[in-house]
Amino acid sequence: MQMPDMLIPQVGVVTEIIKETPDVKTFRVVNIKGNKAFDHMPGQCAMLSIPGVGEAMFSISTSPTNTKYMDFSIKRVGVLTEYMHDKMKEGDHITIRGPYGKPFPVDTELKGKNILFVGGGIALAPLRSVIHYVFDNREDYGYVDILYGARSVADLVYYKEIEKSWTQRRNTNVYLTIDRPDDEWDGNIGFVPDYFKKIGFSTDKVVVLCGPPIMIKFVMAVLLEMGFKKEQVYTTLELRMKCGIGKCGRCNIGDKFVCMDGPVFRTDELDHIPNEF
């Protein structure tokens, strides 16, 4: 039997659905035999689909060091995600193909460095993969700072995990912020870029940045103002994708195909392509 084409998915099973926030759920996926569907690297994505509903690209939010399953933290925004949020039950089938895209350079450019993660809202999902990878290979990396913000306490994805596990790690600082005041919140209140400025990080680190475009724009400004270079900052883009293998053409920007040359980009690379992302 010939190898199937990259467009043919395998059938997976959703073993667990975890409600993270009012509009984000984490879907835990294994293949039909109960194993992890395929190997991947942090930052890579997979195509999930319900036949008859749709197919879309999601970033894998578990680390490669997790050999049992993959998590996908998904916000309810479109046709497919509405179905997954509203109709899907644990034990349901889903189709999955991948992995797609270029991962974060965890074994090269990030290795041995201090790392600062900056995330906003649902964008912690792709970062979580790297964060777990770093925690699981702790000796290979220096200090870790995590700055994460969301609209409200309820909108902080992985909040329990952050409190219980991330903050307990050695050589790790976690900074959380929410946009609006809340009675149950004694932490910082304000937008991520402002909080960033307030904390004032030193520039001896690599930055992994992911969030809504407006947040990225303002954090970038703060970063540059504080003396960071664009070569130190990595981010990941989101565009409409169909094939995942650089053929169908819709994620093409400049001479890059986001599904093949990205989604992870070093921010200085983005200066050389048209601003259409």
Binding site: L7, P51, G52, E55, A56, V77, G78, V79, T81, E238, L239, R240, C248, G249, R250, E276, F277
Partner: peptide, 25 residues
């Protein structure tokens, strides 16, 4: 059954890059 098929698409169509959170063109 549900047939998944591929068909020609055109970058001239607004739906080409339309995704749930907006359109980049």
């Amino acid at each position: 059954g549900t047939t998944r098929f591929r068909c020609w698409d055109s970058c001239m169509y607004p739906e080409f890059t339309l995704m749930a959170h907006g359109n980049n063109r």
